[in-house]
Amino acid sequence: MALFSVLDLSPITQGSTAAQSFRNSLDLAQHVERWGFNRYWLAEHHGMPGIASAATAVLIGHVAGGTSTIRVGAGGIMLPNHSPLVIAEQFGTLESLYPGRIDLGLGRAPGSDPTTARALRRNLTSDTDEFPRDVVELADFFSDEPRQSVRAVPGTGLKVPLWILGSSLFGAQLAAALGLPFAFASHFAPQQMMQAIELYRQQFRPSRERAKPYVMLGFNVFAADSDDEAAFRATSWQQAFVNLRSGRPSTLPPPVEGYLDSVGPQQRMLLDSVLSCSAIGAAPAIDAAIRRFIERTGADELMITSQIFDHAARLRSYQIVAETMIAARR
């Protein structure tokens, strides 16, 4: 049976603040640690009014410092925004503070719009080979005897586990070539999921890090004590996703009754597509949907995301996953 983990964007809800989002993230991490989740990842995004996890390494330290056993990491760091040395130093620091608990997932998207990307001082004309080179350079900084003359202090010799993140075939090919675990963003871009999984498994080359392929998949869960309540809670994320894809990114709005009946055919098609890797309902529906998804994909681990407006309801959603799926593993 697959492992279960948490992906948190530290959502800023309508009328709230980033400070409250950070308190909520730590509270959620402490709960899911007790409930048996494997790891807790935070994602880098910039210039997004509804996402507070921009300074990802700082927030990882906040969560790791308030927990004791759960793995904490980045899902992920958008490496084109940073020099590999800076990320090696940041995550070398985290690994030194919280040894054996830090993960580093790496993506090649900027995690922002072009204007924000320019404000990050990225080189927007960089060639497509730069990301693989940066990953190799970053891995070298963590090795016992780096080939580079510069040393990451702290960082050298710490062997922070690296993951390749992706929503296309590119990430699958790179993860396979480097012998690294692969996390696919099926929770918001499921279109190439099965093809990417197959490609990764077929082309995987064993490495010092992994002898065989390891697949983690993003999966949306909106769980509640009744199917109707779960459907209602899911409308917050549905509104936010439509707003984002319409070029109007927003804070996470409160749920509304009958939202799906109010959207046009294009928005409904968009939501139907992204919700193909989701479970909405009470415990029996959640259990059945997750089991079907694991059977279809053979995922080694699911990264559960639950973008729910009310914090108590969000906690309950993850608790239902723990009561159904995680309990079944024991």
Rank of each mutant, 00 (worst) to 15 (best):
F91S: 00
G76C: 15
P99M: 03
E295Y: 03
T115S: 13
A185F: 06
T235H: 06
I197N: 09
C277F: 12
G75L: 03
G75Y: 10
W163M: 05
I102C: 11
Y259H: 12
I294V: 15
A313Y: 05
F170A: 14
V135K: 01
L260C: 01
E295D: 15
T251V: 12
I102F: 03
Q90L: 12
Y40G: 03
R121S: 12
S83W: 04
S246F: 09
R205V: 15
I304N: 08
S278Q: 11
L104Y: 13
D127T: 15
R133L: 14
D228M: 14
L79E: 02
E295K: 13
G73H: 06
Q307F: 13
I294D: 10
A172R: 12
D140T: 08
A139Q: 07
S83H: 13
L260I: 12
S317L: 03
P146R: 00
Q191T: 15
E130N: 11
R210C: 13
E295T: 13
M303K: 00
Y40W: 02
A88D: 06
L85G: 00
A231Y: 01
P132I: 12
M303V: 11
S21W: 04
L28F: 09
F131N: 10
G47R: 06
E95Q: 14
G66I: 08
S10T: 09
S262L: 12
R329N: 15
A64I: 00
Q192T: 11
L42D: 08
L270Y: 07
V72E: 07
S246T: 11
V6G: 03
R23I: 01
R210Q: 14
M78K: 06
R296T: 11
L271G: 08
S5M: 04
R291N: 13
G76H: 06
V6L: 07
G47W: 08
A119L: 15
S276C: 10
T13R: 11
L104T: 10
E301Q: 04
R291V: 09
A57W: 05
Q20F: 00
F232S: 07
P110G: 10
G218A: 02
I326Q: 05
Q239C: 08
E44Y: 10
D261K: 15
M325L: 14
E44S: 06
R314H: 09
D103S: 11
G107A: 05
W237T: 10
S16E: 13
P49S: 05
A183D: 02
P84S: 03
A88E: 00
F204Y: 02
V263N: 07
G50W: 07
V135Q: 09
V242A: 14
L302K: 05
F241V: 11
N81S: 07
A327C: 08
A176T: 10
I12Q: 01
R122H: 08
S278N: 09
